[in-house]
Nucleic acid binder design. Sequence first.
DNA 1: CTGAAAGCGCTTACAG
DNA 2: CTGAAAGCGCTTACAG
Lengths: 358, 358
Amino acid sequence: MAGRGRLRRVTLRDIADRVGVTPTAVSMALADNPRISANTRQTIKATAHDLGYVPSSAARALRNQRAGAIALIVPTTATHVFGHSYFMHVLEGTSLVANERDVQLLVSTNRDTEHGLAAYERVMRSRSADGAILTSAAIDDPMIEPLIASGLPVVMIGSFPYLPSAVTVGVDDRAASRAMTEHLITAHNRTSLLHISGTLDHQTGVDRRDGFLDAVRAHHLEGDARIVEGDLSEESGRRAIADLGEQIREIDGLVAANDDMAFGALTALRSIGLEVPADLSIAGCDDFGLARVTTPSLTTIRVPAKELAQVATTRLFEIMDGKDGWHRHVLEVELVLRQSCGCQPLDDTDDAASVLEI
Amino acid sequence: MAGRGRLRRVTLRDIADRVGVTPTAVSMALADNPRISANTRQTIKATAHDLGYVPSSAARALRNQRAGAIALIVPTTATHVFGHSYFMHVLEGTSLVANERDVQLLVSTNRDTEHGLAAYERVMRSRSADGAILTSAAIDDPMIEPLIASGLPVVMIGSFPYLPSAVTVGVDDRAASRAMTEHLITAHNRTSLLHISGTLDHQTGVDRRDGFLDAVRAHHLEGDARIVEGDLSEESGRRAIADLGEQIREIDGLVAANDDMAFGALTALRSIGLEVPADLSIAGCDDFGLARVTTPSLTTIRVPAKELAQVATTRLFEIMDGKDGWHRHVLEVELVLRQSCGCQPLDDTDDAASVLEI
DNA sequence: CTGAAAGCGCTTACAG
DNA sequence: CTGAAAGCGCTTACAG
């Protein structure tokens, strides 16, 4: 069957020859240009269909000077930043908008090199995309500036205070982290708090840590607050608990910078006989799937990854169309109160006790 | 900054004019064609770099009659078939191989229409990919034949007995399901077995059910065996248990066609006071993330999704290169024995008690 | 060995 | 209103 397709491809000329017009006329007819009479148009379309005509995207792209595609760039470290499920949601949101515009979606990842150089280069070193969504880039990622300087329209997901002119979509990680920490303090009377931070080379990690500190300071609990730096992996959550040794027994509240680490901490706590939420309240961040299925289920901050991607992609098309618009957009997050903080009884199998918008 | 990039793009002609040669010479120099002297080549490359030359993928594609991209086609129903994490693994495997070949990866999804027609059409109706990986297609998906007939090289992940000439990569779902069922029978003395099947419009669902039946028959347990049809969702796992009513108390072993349903069943069983694995042994299938984090953790069949995608993509490139090779390739799966069957103690926090290759 | 044309398949600006 | 050329940016086959 490959044979059939290996035959020379059907072009406008083939249709033109069959119908007895010029390729120009065929092009116009297929584009419903009123210059071509309804009659001829119909004949041409029928012939195109009969011959199995498929337009050449390469020829179109060359002629129109548009690739007809956008790229989703995911530098290496992405896996570590949010984990797999985050990326699925982003892909879903981006696809949705790209599909509406009938534009192809290129996914440029790089798993091998440290900074995902190739992920950028693949997009920059060929004009195969008319714009790009960049997600999960590190604060000091050296490729962001060249990417933007290349003139390719770019929308970034995340927070990049050092690139004030960049177009970005994100959430207020600091306020969210503060709200969650204050929930443990005010709703559960937790006073000796631990934060397991994310990687501090990503703004998200810095902001979530600072939000934790904001809450702790506002309630004058700095004296009993601790911060351990993690790397967003489940294992680093486990290690954070192990490294604290006996000090962990002084802690009654834990805010982790993501759900994976919260889960790692949960298993570590369980293995040394501490109960959640009886002995400690735990909160995570992300709600990309894990938090709902653990026992106890994890209280967390729901990050609207799919919506972030949708908004970013919609804005990207605006930029590609030359439209003005915002440079920074912030989406709301929700606190999802489940079992690990104590809001929801352990025998309650509903998804969550309640959801708080902040 | 967009302004910079909006300037006319740098082409071979710009470099040629600057250096004082023809675009042909520039093209050859950049391709390291020995026809161009080392000296000139160097000057040309330096100039190309200075001007920020980026080749036009569209022009190349048109000239070379190759798009320089492959597509990953995911029909709508994909989400239901394996869930998000499956797709992440496939994307990872496909990216890996495409990256090695320096080929772009197009992801063509369709979330809206019933059969994901657009996902196929986007790839077929433009020559934007030189080949395609198709995953999670239904047995009777009406687009598979047109896709293959279109002449585009295609490798499918899964099992398609009705398309004997198609190139496919998969696992032996039937044997795996049989092995898992027999594990419950022989290692845990379970004799009254329930299977919650997947959707039977996918071969996977049929094969896993048939494997269950094979085991049950081989051990003469047909009389006490039950099958409930699910749809791979967690909710359908819950519903399967609820619908059985009091009959569930007769059952001592459950094999679900995926982990989501196994987890749904687990929560439903818990809510009516049944304990796993004390009262029932449970097994799922997939091991894409969920099974490891639940309490109890789920015994499951590990489906090597990433490897399937790698093998499929490698084979796709062979076909695109005109090389002969296999039409059907089967990868091995493993039984991952965790807590839900009874192999691993509930207080053991290791990943799994043991892993069996089958 | 080297120079310059042809042509991939489109679409639109131009000439008649 | 309609016909046919020009040209997007490449690469390779061809002529000298």
